[in-house]
Computed example of a mutant assay.
Amino acid sequence: MERQEIIDGLIEVLKTVRMIEPEKLVGVTEETDFLADMSVPSSQMIAIVAKVEQKFDIEFEDDDIDDLGSTVKDVVDLILKVKARG
């Protein structure tokens, strides 16, 4: 799976989060920060993580989530890592 495919899938997930204004989803890159750039409350990150797991048919371990940063790149890297683990 390509990184851009994952970003596109992430954007689909983020469009379902009411707290994110649609205009903040335009021009999302790996450097986009969920907290700073999209104004996602940190409390919403768990809900987003759950939706990401469903979207990509993966399951994160607790340690994965504990170490997760707040940029799109961090999430893309984690998805690729979990998929590589199988």
Rank of each mutant, 00 (worst) to 15 (best):
P22W: 11
D63H: 07
I65K: 03
T32N: 04
V52S: 01
V17A: 12
I6L: 09
K83E: 13
V49S: 07
A84I: 02
E53G: 01
D57I: 06
I11V: 15
F34C: 05
L35S: 01
V26S: 09
P41N: 13
K81D: 13
V40A: 13
D8T: 08
P41I: 07
L14F: 15
V75K: 01
V26N: 11
V72T: 10
T16L: 12
S43A: 14
I11L: 09
A36T: 10
Q4I: 15
D62E: 10
G69S: 14
D63I: 03
L35E: 06
L78T: 00
M45K: 03
G86V: 06
M19S: 15
I6V: 11
R85S: 12
R3C: 07
D62S: 10
R3T: 11
D63E: 12
D33R: 10
G27A: 08
P41Y: 12
D74G: 08
Q44Y: 13
K73I: 06
V28N: 11
M1S: 08
I20M: 06
G86P: 03
Q4W: 13
D8H: 08
D63Y: 07
V13Q: 02
E21Q: 11
E12L: 10
I48Y: 00
S43I: 13
V82P: 00
K81I: 01
V52L: 05
F60M: 00
A36P: 02
G86T: 05
I79G: 01
I11N: 08
M19Y: 15
I11F: 09
F60E: 00
I65G: 01
L14Y: 14
I7R: 15
K81L: 10
E61G: 03
F60A: 00
D8A: 11
R18E: 15
S39I: 06
L78H: 00
G9L: 05
V49K: 01
I65Y: 10
L14D: 05
K15S: 12
Q4A: 15
D77E: 14
L80Y: 03
D64W: 02
K24V: 04
D37P: 13
Q44A: 14
V75D: 02
V13S: 04
G9D: 04
D77W: 07
S42D: 11
M19A: 15
V72N: 01
D74L: 09
E30C: 04
L80V: 09
V49P: 01
D37C: 14
A47E: 09
I46P: 00
Q44W: 08
E30S: 08
G27M: 10
S70A: 05
E59K: 12
